[in-house]
Design a protein around this nucleic acid. Structure first.
Length: 554
RNA sequence: GCGCCCAUAGCUCAGCUGGACAGAGCAACGGACUACGAAUCCGUAGGUCGGGUGUUCGAAUCACCCUGGGCGCGCCA
């Protein structure tokens, strides 16, 4: 509807310009919004006020000129008013809202899906936690946001590939190896010191026990360095399997797991550096090899190869991102913890150094989660072994509630996740509010079927019977669903969908409490059944995007 | 010291990319089940949008400066 109106308006403005009624040559971005104040119409635009500076006459007059050329051939507009400082408010005919029922019926599962992705291939990388310990709540937030963003982009007609990048190279692997090795010695009854820099969590000892079980004391017979390396890889594999399992429990599944080791095995790092050398963007200084990221907006240049000959983490990342591009992805989305924000400029700079437009890399920074228990902050440090895992949280509050909780907030606002609160309020958690609306509608439909009423088709009903303001509000809300999906996709903000769901559910619950769907009036019953069934479908579709169940009974 | 994010009702948060008198949910108070599920609904109360200056016809939204909170600033990953 919004689109139709937008086209009508731009046609009108173009006619004004052709006829010389307006001085402007170009149409500024035409924004139609739904005013929250009902007396301001169904849609409203400020276009006349935007054009006023160039027109040199009052906004109201500009608005009048534009409206004079409006050709509403399909007769969708009931009336158009000029209001306040120059807004144009449109009141639409009731009939335009009825068509959404037909659309939902016709498009089924596809209702709400958009086209802005134009089948472009997008890779979305998220979680990517180091395999040195189990996932904690912060990872859970990133996992939920990444997973749902993937669903949203899919609904916007992008071809989405979800990937987890495994940092299985570097000093943290060495630390993991040492940690497991020392716990391994403990498990074999040897009394050795366990230093602070090692990973303190109990899971390390668990891994050591598994190593003992599988290989007994075999690791003692190899050179220590070798054992540590083996145990690091043994531990990382074990942890990674645990991570995969936790994510599965949380409803998150990846299309690919990309190992940093692979980059080296296939010499992708050295080749990426070679490419940059050819571009003349690399130089040596103080024995190290630097990339001129400062040429592309970074505050200083960054080291690719250290003086001791080792490559940096950054070098891996440069190679990894080059690989993403080589695999043909046109849009790259990275979900990062906000503590990595300082890393953004150099990553973007590296893409520009490869001759790419930095805009193809979109980085969503997710603020960290403070885990609370009864108002007290729970310290979270993998190294100190103090954390509540994602698994614990999912077990405590449930998968649906946990996901909804993570998704309700804007990614860039900090989140206090109080377990006590989440548990205590779980019965009143908004997720149940939405799910209840869905279950309630299912119940109505069951009841109708018990009475021998079949679910009607759009062509079987007289839509004009839907004339209550509550019913029109519901229809308007339903017809806004595609816009919500599109806006979420454009802004990379999943939280808009939970909010939309709460609004739709609220409208439904109010309607339900005020009016009856099933009544002795046959035609009215049919048309209302079709309405609530459409609501049900949209709720289910939106919950599906969020990866949350839409139960038929609760 | 430099940089990024945040600050909206007692609490937790929205606010549609600058619009018309600032919105929900919890919590508080008062109501609604002899018809489709009360995990619901209806109503009351609650705010100088952290403070200030500026840009604009118009600012919670943009710019600058303060204040307060979080996080970064390695040849660590």
């Amino acid at each position: 509807m919004k689109k139709t109106l937008t086209e009508l308006m731009s046609d009108s403005i173009r006619r004004c310009m052709d006829k010389g009624l307006l001085n402007s040559r170009e149409i500024p971005p035409l924004i139609l919004e739904s005013p929250r104040e009902k007396s301001h119409g169904d849609y409203s635009t400020n276009i006349a006020m935007v054009m006023t500076p160039r027109e040199g006459r009052p906004s109201q007059e500009v608005a009048r000129i534009i409206l004079s050329q409006l050709a509403d051939e399909d007769e969708v507009i009931e009336k158009a008013e000029i209001a306040g400082p120059g807004f144009i408010n449109f009141f639409l005919k009731e009939k335009v809202w009825y068509s959404v029922l037909e659309e939902i019926e016709g498009e089924g599962e596809d209702f709400g899906k958009g086209k802005i992705g134009e089948s472009r291939r997008v890779q979305i990388e998220f979680v990517s936690a180091n395999p040195t310990g189990p996932l904690h709540v912060g990872h859970g937030r990133g996992a939920a946001i990444g997973d749902v963003l993937a669903n949203i982009l899919d609904a916007c007609n992008y071809r989405v590939f979800k990937e987890y990048y495994i940092n299985d190279v570097g000093s943290q692997m060495d630390t993991l190896g040492k940690s497991v090795f020392l716990r391994y010695l403990h498990a074999l009854g040897k009394d050795v010191e366990f230093p602070d820099y090692c990973y303190q969590g109990d899971y390390v000892a668990e891994i050591a026990k598994k190593a003992v079980k599988e290989r007994e004391d075999a690791y003692l017979s190899y050179p220590q360095e070798e054992s540590i390396r083996s145990l690091a890889s043994f531990g990382a594999d074990d942890i990674l399997r645990g991570i995969e399992k936790d994510l599965d429990q949380f409803g998150v599944h990846f299309d690919g797991w990309f190992s940093e080791k692979e980059l080296y095995r296939e010499e992708k790092v050295s080749r990426a550096i070679g490419d940059l050398k050819e571009r003349g963007l690399v130089y040596e200084k103080e024995g190290a090899l630097w990339l001129k990221t400062s040429q592309f907006g970074d505050e200083k240049d960054r080291v690719l190869i250290k003086a001791n000959g080792e490559t940096t983490y950054f070098a891996s990342d440069v190679a990894y991102h080059k690989d993403k591009l080589d695999r043909g992805f046109e849009v790259l989305i990275n979900i990062w913890g906000a503590d990595h924000h300082g890393y953004v400029p150099r990553m973007k700079a590296s893409l520009m150094a490869m001759g790419k437009d930095e805009a193809i890399l979109k980085i969503v920074l997710v603020q960290l989660v403070s885990l609370m228990r009864g108002g007290k902050i729970v310290a979270m440090s993998t190294r100190a072994g103090e954390f509540t895992t994602l698994r614990d949280v999912v077990e405590e509050v449930g998968r649906d509630a946990a996901r909804f909780f993570f998704l309700m907030r804007r990614p860039d606002s900090q989140l206090d996740f109080d377990l006590e609160l989440a548990k205590r309020q779980s019965a009143e958690n908004p997720v149940y509010y939405v799910q209840y609306a869905h279950a309630r509608i299912c119940s109505i439909i069951r009841e109708a079927q018990n009475k021998g009423i079949v679910l009607p088709q759009f062509e079987d009903i007289d839509v004009r019977l839907l004339n209550l303001s509550e019913e029109l509000d519901l229809l308007k809300c339903l017809s806004g669903y595609p816009e919500v999906i599109e806006a979420s996709g454009l802004s990379l903000e999943p939280h808009r969908i939970p909010f939309y769901l709460m609004e739709l559910s609220s409208l439904f619950h109010s309607y339900y409490n005020k009016y009856r769907v099933i009544s002795s009036e046959v035609e009215l019953t049919k048309v209302r059944l079709l309405l609530v069934n459409s609501i049900k479908r949209v709720i289910k579709s939106a919950l599906n995007v969020l990866g949350i169940l839409a139960p038929e009974k609760m």
